[in-house]
Design a protein around this nucleic acid. Structure first.
Lengths: 235, 235
DNA sequence: TGGTCGCTTCGGTCCGGGGCGAAGCGTCGC
DNA sequence: GCGACGCTTCGCCCCGGACCGAAGCGACCA
């Protein structure tokens, strides 16, 4: 099929260390400039420009020129899901001794536009366990209880439904379990940030490709999520 | 983390056309000899040997020496799932005009040890829709009705439970939806083949990397799956 | 309207690694 | 036990592509 060649081309696109670092940095969901991505990848501007052109031509990133900056972001949720899953396989297959980013990174982080880490999989488990979401063709749908409960939390279900997929699974890289993606995943993350239940942490090091994804649960957030959903993360 | 480097290494491993063709061929779930894989990749024996050594060292394939042959198979279900998902992204991102393997390939095929294609996603939908399986931490569990129904079909649930994961989702490459993997997915596929509800089709061309995955539903299989689960594929 | 800045293009270098032929080695079959 | 076979190792060539410095181009600022 077109696939052996297309597959190899896509994998090769991800298979360069510099491009991989760029994609990892873009998993924060932000749109980053070519310069920021060059710093994240640890290469010069000309090399970064060439890499970004290839990523864009390959359909993995979208370019957004704005003044003298060129902003880049991942082309979509499926791209993010594939990167996250490949990262999971990499840690599964390689020794993967320690996590330079500490436990915080496994605890809570962004995966494109939704929540990942222990918090992400705990939320997924709580939503399914309490029957707030139920299996539907191609993903999940909200039940009656779920609509009420999510609305009470402040999740914008109307916005969530506007997404191409309302709710679907995304393989969690560190936990090797599914967390929730799709419009609902995005709106839950947005709600948690808007209500200051989660806050973004600054990168540990300047130019760290993964630093932009770091999140921390606030005391208020821990309280609210426990009360509403029984989500309780081990300290 | 270890990830930018490990991630890139893993992706680069998949990013060579010859290695990609080998991995695709191994998605049939069979263990293939180095020579068969060389033919599937369209390269000579020395090159194939080097590629397979790298795939094995990277943890993607396991080697099984047997006499003067060396059999290779995918290292596990997660490897298969990642390959399948990356293939899906490749078709999503590239034009992906026509399917040289025809509609049969989208209809039913093997994905490692379980069923994929329209049949695979239809089975997934039927099992969830009828409440035979229900969400559980890390995947799915069988309900009471599911245990009875599956046993009546002839699915070996005891064997299914011996797997590391009983049932989990695997992104379907052509349908862009989840189908069922894990021990249950494997046993369902085995049951369908054992009872001649499905039969393996010969490769269209000699040395076709994807040919080994082709399946066809028999009339008896269509009847049985419709009666038991309401699974009916459009002709 | 210069000057600075962000990014791209061009030119050139260099290295990794993918390919093959030939040879070596262990296994199977007559 | 000898040849055939499957696979690996070795030696070699060669090409793609990753990188940088320098230059070019457009956008913002004073």
């Amino acid at each position: 099929m077109s696939t052996p060649a297309a597959f190899a081309g896509l994998a090769a696109l991800m298979g360069d260390p510099a491009r991989a670092a760029m994609l990892q940095a873009l998993l924060s969901g932000e749109a980053l400039t070519a310069g920021e991505l060059a710093r994240a990848a640890g290469i010069g501007a000309p090399a970064a420009s060439a890499h970004l052109a290839r990523l864009a031509e390959g359909g993995l990133v979208l370019v957004h020129p704005q003044g003298r900056h060129r902003y880049h972001r991942l082309a979509g949720e499926e791209v993010a899901a594939a990167i996250e899953m490949l990262g999971g396989l990499a840690t599964a297959v390689a020794p993967a001794r320690r996590w330079p980013h500490g436990e915080e990174f496994r605890q809570a982080r962004l995966c494109y536009d939704h929540l990942a880490g222990r918090l992400g999989v705990a939320l997924h488990g709580a939503l399914t366990g309490r029957g707030w979401i139920a299996p539907a063709p191609g993903g999940w749908q909200a039940t009656g209880a779920g609509e009420a409960g999510l609305a009470a939390l402040g999740v914008d279900l109307t916005a969530a439904r506007r997404a191409r997929r309302f709710a679907c699974d995304c393989m969690d890289w560190s936990e090797r379990r599914a967390h929730l993606a799709g419009g609902l995943g995005r709106e839950i993350a947005a709600c948690c940030l808007r209500r200051h239940w989660l806050r973004r942490l600054p990168p540990l090091r300047e130019g760290d490709p993964l630093g932009r994804r770091r999140l921390a649960l606030t005391p208020e957030g821990a309280r609210q999520l426990d009360a509403a959903l029984g989500v309780r993360l081990a300290a």
